[in-house]
Amino acid sequence: MRRYFGRKLLIYGLTFFMAVTVNWLVPRLMPGDPVASMLARARVAQPEAQEALRVYYNNLFGFDLPWWQQYLNSWGSLFRGDFGISLWAFPTPVADLLTRAVPYSLALLVPSILLSWVVGNRLGALAARRKVLDNTVLPVSYVLTATPYLWLAALMAWGFGVVWGIFPVAGGYSFSMTPSFTWDFFADLLWHWLLPFSSLFLVALGGWAIGMRNVIIYELESDYANYMSALGAPQKLIRRYAFRNAVLPQITGLALQLGVLVAGALVTEIVFSYPGLGSLILAAIQNKDFFLLQGAFLFIVLGVLIANFIIDVVYVIVDPRTRVGMAGAAA
């Protein structure tokens, strides 16, 4: 088990190292003076802000230093939580913008990922080897999983928001509200959250249902299932065992899908102008605010790595074989 976690942590460490390195390298590989071209392309109105930024970034990049010192410095500022200052929302530090946006992104991601996983697994398990259900759940699931997140989001925003006017189509809360710890504000938050959440949930649901259906059919044909059938065990018990075993590869699948799910959440946020990381990234791209973009990138990488580690821990808790230490998880 120690070996298992050791290996995982090594991979996560290397991944983070690589992400930071890429982040450091990409602007330096681009031709010309990155600060000048960045400021030229950025839409910063005030001249004094321009000048302040030039000084600040020249210091930050530290171009007069040897490259390895520049590289070490970038790690130093990273550990201090210094991601630079946003050009788009000058003079707000990037770190502040990101930490303000993260709760919104998490509020969308965590429930939609967990719920779609749980419901999708149940649905897939129900459909497996049952003709009528299988013939309805499976096609619907394939359509859902082939749907781009952003398109379903757009359809729902248009249908429920514009045509029927039931739900708000933009923002994390109404413009007339100021954030506070009141029931009214909370209800308003929930109201704005429901559509983006639902569209994320639905697209992810299809994939989990298909995955579970296929794994559980495989499990129902496995030796232990055959043995139990030969001993006259009822289908209920066999299905329960099969489900329990089929959940394990689905947990691994959850780890593998995290990147896709996060990407889905980012574009969904953009459709609904939801004030999370996705909307920040859009703003960064439209305004050529590379520091904001790079900060968001590191935040996402870090978040995905942490989530991966949590999933590893859960896997060890759920699969006795990893604890016994005779076999490792598939991932």
Binding site: V262, L293, V301
Partner: peptide, 22 residues
């Protein structure tokens, strides 16, 4: 295998943002 696992856990869309944006 190590390389595969690293690229596997990396959220690739975020990497693509950076590359394409520059």
């Amino acid at each position: 295998n190590m390389l595969t696992n690293i690229v596997l856990v990396l959220p690739t869309l975020a990497v693509l943002f950076i590359l394409n944006a520059y």
